[in-house]
Design a protein around this nucleic acid. Sequence first.
DNA 1: CGAAACTTTGAGCGCATTCAACGCCAGTGG
DNA 2: CCACTGGCGTTGAATGCGCTCAAAGTTTCG
Lengths: 255, 255
Amino acid sequence: MPNPFIQKLALRAHLDAQDIEALRGATCDVTQVDAGRDLSLDGSTPGVAYVILEGFACRYKLVDDGGRSILAYLVPGDGCDLHASLLNRAINSVATLTPCTIASISYQMIKGLAASRPNIFRALWWSVLVDEAVLQEWLVGIGRRSADRQIAHLLCELLTRLQAIGLATEPDYRLPLTQSELADTAGLSNIHLSRVLADLRKAGLIKSGRKSISVPDIRRLQTFAGFDPGYLLLSGPNANPTELGALPGTTGLIR
Amino acid sequence: MPNPFIQKLALRAHLDAQDIEALRGATCDVTQVDAGRDLSLDGSTPGVAYVILEGFACRYKLVDDGGRSILAYLVPGDGCDLHASLLNRAINSVATLTPCTIASISYQMIKGLAASRPNIFRALWWSVLVDEAVLQEWLVGIGRRSADRQIAHLLCELLTRLQAIGLATEPDYRLPLTQSELADTAGLSNIHLSRVLADLRKAGLIKSGRKSISVPDIRRLQTFAGFDPGYLLLSGPNANPTELGALPGTTGLIR
DNA sequence: CGAAACTTTGAGCGCATTCAACGCCAGTGG
DNA sequence: CCACTGGCGTTGAATGCGCTCAAAGTTTCG
């Protein structure tokens, strides 16, 4: 069984045989977890990080009034709290959305890997940047996109991410998320989310069944959503970042 | 003149004399920039990072329909694109909001510092985590908080951050932001933002004058906003992160 | 002083919410 | 096999938060 974590890191930096061996050794502490369990709680001091090998999870936060805000989806190959290894406080909660197979990694192990293996370090750093880029894109969506475009954008993103790890075939993919979860991602009520999905269905942009989505025409959905996959930084590893110079403040005004 | 960048990093990791000297040397390429100029454009390949020494800037993205979404405020001491040093593509634009004094740092310089000085590396890593935590909190606010609480929360955050670098006295602080910028941060129209501010003023939670905010009773504003400064990770440097163990999936259910 | 940028106010509309009820489906136990 | 239950999704009606459009007031700056 291939390790999706290693697969994903290999997309983002060149890994040699020793790197892969080290990663394989680090992710050998494997556990099964039910759906709907917390892996880490906001404000706690975990000391252990996880990697999702199978299943879906999410990072989330709760608000005073009982509302929930989903901050990220974790799919196979994604780590959680990996880059928080120098904090003594989790800045968000993490919960499984489906039954999951996860690997536990101690913070010491992570620090050791990051310090001794530059390739791994670079791949982890890259992952952090992707996390941040996704978070930014969600903020844009929730703030400045209409609900239907925002959902379409989210579906495009998930489709792209799942394709990158071979979990989605071209036209359609299985999305084991409830509407309530999508709503808490998009900042909508689940009633309204239901209507938005119905609209997208009526427009022929998606076909949704029980916990699965199929996209008849990806291009059309992407155009509708204004989706540009560039921010996912999937386009090849950056073996050689071009170091161009630039002068400050010469380009143009805002807007 | 003290260097706020070094001050801020020193909050986040212990820096010895050599670290400080190295940082001082790295930030000696200083420039003045007008307000409203772009320091970096989404999708470009900058190759140079900046540190704000004086003034305010922001990270932002534009949407197809002309909308703008502000993703972060950069205050004195904050870096921009520092951690993107291994990307060859900026994932957002950066623009000055006021006249700024900035220092330019080449990516090679950053990489060198991060590689040779563990303390600096740790401080930079810490900064990335704070960036992410703030972004998450904004996502929660824009998605699940009412407009007035969201704005109150944002004002609390900015006040706390400015106090941390000595740019705000206890009861009030100067906030050189236009309502249009606040609106693009909160995902609101500027007309509605004007009303929200008026409501907060009427409720006695803030007193706002021309580009300045004063907060008569910080506690009251924080309570109203549900603000907990923990996510800003300002509470002391993490010289000794406690390494506690934890078992997966034993804590509780979502909600 | 005049122009441009920013802020405020009012009126009307619409997207999204809440509340409530019903349909659907899977699992469970009689 | 059927009734019961709980989670999830859908639909309808009424309310409201926040938006658009438009215009006037206010600062700032050249």
